[in-house]
Amino acid sequence: MQESFNRFYQRHLGLVRAMALARTGDGALADDLTQETMLSAWRHFAALQTRDDSGQRAWLLTALRHRAIESWRQRKPLEPLVETVAAAPDDPTLRVDIARALTRLSDTDRELIVLRYFEQCDATEIGAILSLPPGTVRRRLHEARVRLEAALESWSTR
């Protein structure tokens, strides 16, 4: 079982860490939430390993959301995502502008963007992770993209 969990851990660690960082904007807190989530996965691994990859991701990100909410309730809210966006082009100014634009989105909309464009999840997978119907995911993604495009309008002329 240890070997199976190690493979599971390596396969999903990046996603859980990225979503924790997107939710909190704080690297240290994201690391804590990631480890708490993976510890919970270890405790529930017997049931988790019977799920397919999409079901495992959904379980992990739901568990992460619960831990983030618990953390938020225990602390004052932190500034959301301020670290650079990994998938942005090499221009550091653009990465900072994207990060700022992402902070203006709600937690759920920011999660939608990260899951779709950084983790390459489709609307059905995102819906399973966030407990939203796929149609709602597509609508909210569209609305979030419109807000991001407006916030980054100055870059469209470059």
Rank of each mutant, 00 (worst) to 15 (best):
Q2S: 11
E3N: 07
N6G: 04
N6R: 13
F8K: 14
H12Q: 04
L13E: 11
A18S: 06
A20R: 08
A22W: 08
A22P: 00
R23I: 12
D26C: 08
L29H: 05
D31K: 14
D31P: 06
L33V: 01
S40K: 09
A41I: 05
A46V: 10
A47P: 02
T50P: 00
R51V: 10
D53F: 00
D53L: 00
G55M: 02
A58I: 10
W59R: 03
R65Y: 04
P77Q: 07
E79H: 06
L81W: 09
L81Q: 04
V82P: 00
V85I: 08
P89S: 15
D90N: 08
D91M: 14
P92C: 11
D97N: 06
D97V: 07
D97R: 03
T103H: 04
D109H: 02
E111Q: 14
L112A: 01
L115H: 03
Y117S: 14
Y117I: 12
F118K: 06
F118N: 11
E119N: 07
C121M: 14
A123R: 01
E125I: 02
I126Q: 05
G127Y: 09
G127I: 07
A128M: 15
A128C: 12
P133N: 06
T136L: 08
R140T: 02
L141Q: 15
E143C: 14
R145G: 01
E149P: 00
T157V: 08
